[in-house]
């Protein structure tokens, strides 16, 4: 079974995003003895953001491995295990920590297949938590997916809903390539963090894949395309619901993966609406928002009846104090003003 549309699940069973992720990992561990999990606090703690809850009890310490704080070593180890045909899932607790281990990720995990002339595969998943909004400061609040997407050789998935979190995880584990699976803390449905209501949603019980590289129309509309990802999808949907009363019909495109990027769906949407707003919780310059606008401009700048706009983190580190952080994150307020801007109102 394959889910290509976010509205496809017909189940009434509701799970949080974290439970949906864990369900996919557990099902793949049942199905395939080569799948195992390693990372900091993935065992007894169950993952700081509940990405591995219950796996240790079910699969034991051989397959759910707590590691020392040695990211270069254990992510590198995952690469080596993958090269030998296993399917490791390695967790980098926060994407912000990639600084201590990026060489293994971008010079090794991502390049081995190419450098080997396609003779060596690296079928692993690197999971990592991203995002801000709870005052965790400049070293614990970044999304940074643009950086991973910029560097060739790794797929990058960015789920926004529980159903996609499960299906994308299943696809990521089964993929023969390295997949970076970036989950926003704000969509996990954690009991200790303010929740978006959509962080709990319907999730089919059976196995299914959400194809990597296929965006979803999270809300159809006719006036403006809001291309976005992860938690920002929910802010965009909230604004879209609200603006329907102002006679602005927003279409929200949930990118679901950055590599590959579903350019066709974006172009098709912009072709219909003629207006584009990109909402991205990563830094503004040299990133996802610029890339999407470039892809539209490359195809046909004439598609746009108004200059495109973007709401992203201005090029400053993410500040701690709530008022400062709110000023830089892509909040509903900033998205709303940008929609008015792109509509010329």
């Amino acid at each position: 079974m394959s889910l290509t549309d976010a509205s496809a699940p017909t189940t009434t069973r509701r799970l949080s995003t974290s439970k949906a992720m864990v369900e996919a990992v557990a099902a793949e561990m049942d199905r395939d003895q080569d799948v195992f999990v390693m990372g900091e606090d993935v065992g007894a703690y169950g993952g700081i953001f509940s990405s591995t809850t219950g796996l240790l009890d079910r699969f034991g310490p051989q397959r759910v491995v707590d590691t020392p704080i040695s990211e270069t070593a254990f992510i590198g180890a995952a690469i080596g295990a993958a090269v030998e045909g296993m399917r490791p899932i390695a967790e980098l607790m926060f994407a912000d920590f990639f600084g201590v281990c990026m060489d293994q990720i971008y010079n090794h995990m991502a390049k081995i297949h190419y450098e080997s002339g396609g003779n060596v595969r690296v079928p692993m998943v690197l999971t990592t938590a991203v995002g801000g909004g709870y005052s965790d400061g400049a070293q614990h609040s970044q999304c940074l997916w643009g950086t991973f997407a910029h560097l060739p050789g790794m797929k990058v998935v960015v789920p926004s809903s529980p159903a996609d979190a499960k299906g994308l995880m299943t696809s990521a584990i089964r993929d023969d390539n390295p997949v970076v699976y970036m989950f926003h803390k704000g969509i996990m449905g954690l009991p200790w963090m303010a929740k978006n209501p959509r962080s709990v949603g319907p999730v089919p019980e059976e196995d299914y894949e959400v194809p990597i590289g296929k965006a979803a129309i999270a809300r159809p509309g006719t006036d403006v395309t809001i291309a976005t990802l992860s938690l920002s999808v929910h802010h965009a949907l909230d604004v879209a619901d609200e603006l329907a009363d102002n006679d602005i019909d927003c279409e929200v495109v949930d990118l679901r993966s950055l590599v590959p990027l579903d350019t066709d769906t974006i172009l098709e949407s912009v072709g219909r609406t003629g207006r584009l707003l990109v909402v991205d919780e990563d830094y503004r310059s040299f990133g996802v928002s610029g890339e999407i606008i470039a892809r539209v401009a490359e195809r046909d700048p004439g598609m746009l009846s108004a200059p495109p706009m973007r709401v992203a983190v201005p090029d400053v580190p993410i500040p701690y104090a709530r008022g400062l952080e709110d000023a830089v994150l892509p909040t509903a307020d900033r998205i709303r003003s940008a929609v008015f801007g792109v509509m010329g109102r």
Partner: peptide, 30 residues
């Protein structure tokens, strides 16, 4: 997170910098 803080509210508890006594800290391990 206030304006009179060492980092004027930008740093927070893991990012305290006081150059008068050459003190700093970081949230990234080691």
């Amino acid at each position: 997170g206030r304006v009179d803080g060492l980092g004027k509210g930008r740093g927070g508890h893991m990012h305290l910098f006081d150059p008068d006594v050459h003190f700093s800290c970081s949230g990234i391990i080691a």
